[in-house]
Design a protein around this nucleic acid. Structure first.
Length: 734
DNA sequence: GCACTTTCAACTCA
DNA sequence: CTGAGTTGAAAGTG
């Protein structure tokens, strides 16, 4: 396999040469496209916690069957649910009608190649990206170290790209020579006081134990995976920072702090500016912080709306725009998904005195130059987060070109530059998917191809649509929709759950909260309900707790909060996806079904809907990584130490939406044991959480597990061939 | 290289 | 619940 191919322009492309304005040094060292991965490094080193789940046999429950929905089986011999998330060859799907299924497919599946499925080069005469290398800190382990020899690592050839990154003006990007600045134990005359702005209590920046040192080597040369690792690390650190900040009265803005850490540690992708697509970033990708755009190389300014750079056009240099954020700060109409009128920057001010006409400089000038140079410009659109009143979501909407520009007076009477951008043809839908799914949320009847408006018949908080826009099949085989797990013994006979005595709600940092103690001292969810870390077990507050139902430590027990649809896939039965964007760490749903007696499980024959706690692949196991960057122990579970739970749940005859989630070796969902209504840790609730940010209409998949790994051994003959086709596909699943 | 400026953030709190 | 006020990081600019 040609490991460099993802980064190289094809030789015969009409390549635009991009070079720094003020240096003569080439932007990237030869040879072009040298890969950024050092294979010799161990990927991530995890230190797994000791211990395992106590395997006590539990009792049962009086599960409440809140609804009874049945569906006639069709004559077609295709089951829903547990089938491999087969990935179609992009070219093999000929004849498919363009549907949202296709849209979804193009997002998830083509991701394996990390190659955007549009040919920017073919879309006209405009210049193209000629900075093909997705730079990544690969050769130096990112560790927190007290070891400060004050040497000048800028001359260290271990960082092949260090001296070659440039800013838009061609200046070398200043980088830290070491990470010791984060150690609050000593200052050591660090050469960059920027580090000291990152405030963390001394204790949390202590040196990581030697056996915890890791190198955050990307999992592969696939730029998509690199970007995902960067974003997952950012989010994991941000959630943890938030958690720490709550208990200590430190300042907030975990996004900025973590962004700075990752910048300083060079844990970022696509360093160096470029015109056109960014490797590993796909149209429709969603983000929740500007810093995320920053660290993956999509949009460099941390606040500014216009990203621009000097590029060479023939023999001439020109400063052109490369990416804009349209977040509705200035006046703009946002009805059309293919055109965008963007306002130049400057002029507006909070107090009216400072208001002035916009000037044709910086970003505005770059946009003007892009109009004449006709280069493509990335567009990111920002919207209010429907799930969070104060939050924002950013959606990457692909490449646009400026068609015209003009100057007009705003309502407040200042001159404002306007730029009309037109979306390049042939790109998959980005914001259009967002807009239409938002419309369905407001008005579900606008959704076409509906077979059933609510599979749950009112049992869930929100209706679950059944959709088939692929073929004539009328629905999955008969099953009963239930919303709670059915244990084989009554709940009252199980070990009781020890609750807390917090009044009103549990407060972070309250050392007397029994529930926090169960969870290792911290509340497991952030204030917005995101799971902070993956754990062996999460203990929510339950009925035996004194706190109210509004307590933050009650998330999964409140049930489904997402607008789901069960939809017909093209080649793997029925699948599950969402109309809502889902943020990493969000609760999705519970694996509901009938808990089966371990002694009988093999007598029941084949059960495609049997959930077992089989060890998942490393993408799932690595969800938390990054704690070592703030000097904490790594608490991840590894495949070697993973211990399955005795619980087995069958959703064959009764279940909920989770029975439709397909398998993938590159999943976007993971399972997490959660307890709140009994104390038998061998039989917890199996709750699903988002592994990463999931755009609307993306199929939800989790890793069914690797039966080849150390696991229960039960059902090892049940292996199915996996067709998911991702670069690291194991080839089978349980 | 340093100080300063600019900026379609992201909070908090009244 | 909204808007004003506050604290910001990165990178351009001189």
């Amino acid at each position: 396999m040609n490991r460099t191919s993802n980064f190289m322009p094809t030789p015969d492309q009409d390549v635009l040469e991009v070079k720094p304005l003020r240096t003569l040094a080439p932007m990237f060292p030869a040879p072009l496209g040298v890969n950024v991965v050092n294979q010799s490094k161990t990927p991530l080193v995890f230190v797994a916690p000791a211990g395992q789940f106590p395997g006590v046999f539990g009792a049962s429950n009086h599960p409440e069957v809140r609804s009874f929905a049945t569906f006639g089986g069709q004559d077609q011999d295709v089951s829903g649910g547990k089938t491999a998330a087969a990935v179609g060859d992009p070219g093999a799907g000929g004849g498919q009608t363009p549907t949202f299924g296709d849209q979804e497919t193009s997002r998830g599946k083509f991701a394996a190649n990390g190659t955007p499925n549009i040919d920017v080069n073919a879309t006209g005469t405009g210049p193209i990206d000629a900075t093909p290398i997705s730079a990544y800190k690969s050769t130096q382990p990112s560790i927190i170290s007290l070891d400060d020899d004050d040497d000048d690592d800028d001359e260290n050839d271990d960082e092949p790209y260090a001296g070659n990154q440039t800013s838009a003006s061609g200046q070398n990007i200043k980088r830290p020579s070491h990470l010791s600045g984060y150690n609050m134990n000593d200052n050591l005359g660090s050469d960059n006081s920027n580090f000291m702005k990152i405030k963390r209590p001394k204790s949390s920046y202590r040196k990581a134990a030697a056996d915890n040192e890791l190198s955050l080597t990307p999992p592969s040369s696939n730029p998509r995976e690199i970007v995902e690792v960067i974003l997952m690390t950012f989010e994991a650190l941000r959630r943890r920072h938030l958690q720490l900040d709550e208990t200590q009265e430190t300042s907030k803005r975990a996004d900025l702090k973590v962004g700075a850490i990752m910048m300083a540690s060079n844990l970022r992708a696509n360093i160096g500016k470029r015109i056109g697509t960014v490797p590993g970033v796909e149209i429709g990708d969603i983000f929740y912080f500007r810093m995320e755009l920053c660290i993956i190389g999509l949009h460099a300014p941390s606040m500014g709306g216009i990203d621009y750079m000097n590029a060479k056009f023939g023999d001439e240099d020109d400063s052109v725009a490369i990416c804009i954020i349209a977040a509705g700060v200035y006046e703009n109409n946002d009805d059309d998904t293919d055109t965008l009128v963007y306002s130049g920057s400057g002029g507006i001010s909070k107090n009216n005195e400072d208001r002035h006409d916009q000037k044709l400089e910086r970003g505005n000038l770059a946009l003007e130059r892009s109009l004449s140079r006709k280069n493509v410009i990335r567009v990111v659109r920002g919207y209010k987060d429907p799930a969070c009143l104060t939050g924002r979501v950013y959606i990457y909407d692909g490449l646009y070109k400026i068609q015209e520009s003009w100057k007009e007076k705003t309502k407040t009477g200042i001159d404002c530059f306007k730029y009309k951008l037109q979306r390049e043809p042939g790109q998959p839908d980005g914001v259009a998917v967002w807009k239409i799914s938002q419309r369905w949320i407001e008005n579900p009847s606008a959704r076409g191809s509906v077979l059933h408006s609510d599979l749950s018949c009112g049992a869930e908080n929100l209706p679950v649509c059944l959709i088939n826009d692929v073929n004539s099949e009328k629905g999955p085989y008969h099953f009963t929709y239930i919303t709670q797990v059915k244990y084989f013994k009554p709940l009252s006979s199980m070990k009781p759950f020890q609750g807390c005595r917090c009044l009103s709600v549990c407060i972070p940092g309250d050392t007397s909260c029994v529930c926090a103690q169960h969870n290792g001292g911290d509340l497991p969810y952030s204030s917005s309900g995101l799971l902070v870390c993956r754990k062996l077990m999460v203990y929510e507050c339950g009925e035996s707790c004194q706190c109210s139902f509004n307590c933050r430590n009650r998330v999964t027990q409140k049930g489904v909060m997402i607008h789901f649809e069960v939809f017909r896939t093209t080649n793997r039965g029925w699948g599950l996806r969402s109309w809502d964007p889902i943020r990493a760490g969000s609760f999705i749903c519970e694996y509901v079904g009938k808990v089966v007696d371990d002694n009988k499980v093999n007598l029941d024959g084949e059960d495609d809907y049997l959930f077992q706690t089989v060890c998942p692949g490393e993408k799932t196991l690595k969800w938390n990584y990054g704690p070592e960057l703030i000097g904490e122990q790594i608490t991840n579970i590894s495949a070697d130490t993973f211990e399955p739970l005795p619980i087995k749940i069958s959703a064959k005859k009764m279940g909920n939406i989770s029975r439709f989630m397909n398998h993938s070796c590159a999943p976007n969902v993971f399972w997490q044991p959660v307890q709140f209504d009994h104390g038998d840790d061998g039989y917890p609730h199996i709750m699903f959480f988002a592994l990463k940010h999931i755009p609307p209409m993306t199929e939800l998949t989790y890793d069914y597990g690797d039966i080849g790994a150390k696991s229960s051994g039960v059902g090892s003959n049940r292996a199915k061939n996996c067709l998911c086709g991702f670069s690291n596909c194991r080839g089978y699943f349980s």
